[in-house]
Amino acid sequence: MRVFISHAWEDKPLALSLSQLPDFIDAWVDVRELLGGERLDPTIITAIEDSHVFIVLISRISLAKVWVAQEVNWAMEREAQKDRVFVLPVVIEAGIDLTTSAPPFQQFAQRLFIDASDRSEAGIAKARALIAGTLFHWASDWLDRMEPRGDSNRRFADTLERDLVEFQTRLFAVKAALAWPLPTLVQDEAVAHLIQVKDAYNTFTERFIPHLGDLDADIRWRFGVAAQRGFMRLTTFIRNEVYHGAAFALNDAIESINAFETVLSKDPPALAAAESRRQARVAALEPVMAELVERTADYVDTLRP
Rank of each mutant, 00 (worst) to 15 (best):
A177T: 01
A177R: 00
F172A: 14
R170V: 06
T203K: 10
Q196L: 13
A190T: 04
N202T: 14
F208W: 10
P183F: 06
Q168P: 00
D216Q: 11
I195Q: 13
T203I: 04
F204Y: 13
P181W: 02
F208K: 02
T205M: 05
K175Q: 15
A217G: 06
L171M: 11
A176P: 02
I209L: 08
T184M: 11
K198R: 14
F208P: 00
T184G: 05
F223K: 08
D218P: 00
V186M: 11
F208M: 05
A179M: 07
T203V: 09
Y201M: 14
T205D: 02
A190Y: 08
L182F: 04
T184Q: 15
Q196S: 12
A173T: 01
A217I: 10
D216V: 11
R170Y: 01
L215H: 01
G224N: 10
A190W: 03
W221D: 15
L185T: 03
L194Q: 08
I195L: 13
A200D: 13
R222S: 09
D218E: 15
Q168H: 10
A179H: 08
R220M: 07
K175F: 02
D218G: 02
Y201P: 01
H211D: 15
R222V: 05
L194E: 07
T169N: 12
L182M: 11
E206D: 14
G224C: 08
E206P: 00
L185W: 02
D218F: 02
L194Y: 09
T203D: 15
L215F: 04
D199A: 15
V191E: 13
W180F: 10
F204G: 04
D214M: 06
L194F: 08
F223N: 08
L171E: 03
N202R: 13
I195V: 14
N202V: 14
F172G: 04
P210Q: 03
F223A: 09
F223I: 04
T184W: 03
Q168K: 07
G224H: 07
G213E: 13
G224M: 09
D188A: 14
V191S: 12
L178W: 03
H211W: 11
A192P: 03
A217K: 10
V197Q: 01
Q187T: 12
K198I: 03
L171H: 05
I219N: 04
H193T: 13
Y201F: 15
A217V: 07
G213F: 06
Q196V: 07
Y201C: 12
L178H: 06
L178E: 09
W221C: 09
P181G: 08
I209S: 00
D199I: 00
